[in-house]
Simulated assay, not measured.
Amino acid sequence: MAQTYHYLAASERFLHEHIVEEVLEERRRDYLARNKPIDFWLVRAPAFLEALGEHRCPLPAAAIVSTDGAFILWLKHRLQYVLMGSFEAPSPAIPDPLATSATVR
């Protein structure tokens, strides 16, 4: 059954410089403390960008993917200069929402 995934994408360097990994780790600790399942992932070289025909993101790209659209919107406001969108998966074009690209551009 397909599910909606929300994402924000930017160059991997941009996300690293803006301490996104620390934000995700804080959120992960909070979820674990509340016994809430993890619903967000950091994906390097996300394959779904190619499947969506998204070529505006600087390379190498990375994305934060979540089933929680409000979380992605919150990150968008915090980071500002990122691409944001959503997609349904699994689908014929995107069989695995967390897959990495075989051809890292």
Rank of each mutant, 00 (worst) to 15 (best):
Trp74Ala: 12
Asp30Val: 13
Glu22Ile: 07
Met84Ala: 11
His16Ala: 03
Lys76Ser: 02
Ser91Lys: 14
Arg34Met: 15
Met84Tyr: 10
Asp68Trp: 06
Ala33Tyr: 15
Asp39Thr: 13
Pro95Gln: 10
His18Glu: 02
Leu75Glu: 04
Ile19Asp: 05
Glu21His: 02
Asp39Cys: 05
Val43Asp: 10
Leu73Ser: 08
Leu24Val: 03
Ile94Thr: 08
Pro97Trp: 12
Trp74Ile: 12
Leu73Asp: 07
Glu22Ala: 03
Ala33His: 15
Ala61Met: 11
Pro58Phe: 04
His6Ala: 07
Phe71Met: 10
His55Arg: 04
Leu98His: 09
Arg105Asp: 12
Val23Lys: 13
Leu32Ile: 14
Pro97Val: 03
His18Lys: 02
Thr67Gly: 07
Cys57Ala: 00
Ile38Ser: 07
Met84Cys: 02
Lys76Thr: 13
Leu75Pro: 10
Arg56Ala: 06
Ala70Val: 10
Leu73His: 09
Glu50Lys: 03
Pro37Lys: 15
Tyr7Leu: 05
Tyr5Asp: 06
Ala99Thr: 01
Val82Gln: 09
Glu21Met: 12
Pro58Gly: 05
Thr103Ile: 01
Val43Gln: 02
Asp30Ile: 13
Ile64Thr: 03
Cys57Pro: 00
Met1Gln: 14
Glu22Ser: 01
Glu25Phe: 11
Arg27His: 08
Ala99Tyr: 09
Ser91Val: 14
Pro58Glu: 07
Glu54Leu: 04
Ala70Phe: 05
Arg28Cys: 12
Ala61Ser: 07
Glu26Arg: 13
Ala89Pro: 15
Met84Ser: 03
Glu17Ser: 03
Asp30Met: 14
His6Ile: 10
Glu17Tyr: 05
Leu73Thr: 11
Phe48Ser: 10
Asn35Tyr: 15
Met84Pro: 09
Arg27Lys: 14
Ser86His: 15
Arg105Gly: 02
Phe87Leu: 13
Lys76Trp: 10
Leu52Phe: 11
Ala45Glu: 12
Ala33Asp: 15
Ala61His: 02
Leu83Arg: 10
Leu42Gln: 02
Leu59Tyr: 00
Gly53Glu: 12
Leu15Gly: 10
Pro90Asn: 04
Glu50Ala: 00
Arg56Pro: 05
Ile94Gly: 07
Leu24Phe: 03
Cys57Gln: 10
Ala51Met: 06
Glu17His: 00
Met84Ile: 14
Ala33Pro: 14
Leu8Ser: 12
Phe40Arg: 00
Glu21Ser: 03
Glu25Ile: 06
Thr4Arg: 14
Asp96Pro: 11
Gln3Ile: 13
Pro97Ile: 01
Leu49Pro: 01
Arg29Trp: 14
Ser11Asn: 13
Leu83Pro: 07
Ser11Gln: 10
Trp41Arg: 09
Ala102Trp: 02
Lys76Gly: 11
Phe48Tyr: 08
Leu52Ala: 08
Tyr31Asn: 15
Leu15Phe: 05
Val20Phe: 07
Ala99Trp: 05
Tyr5Thr: 00
Ile19Lys: 08
Tyr5Ser: 06
Leu15His: 00
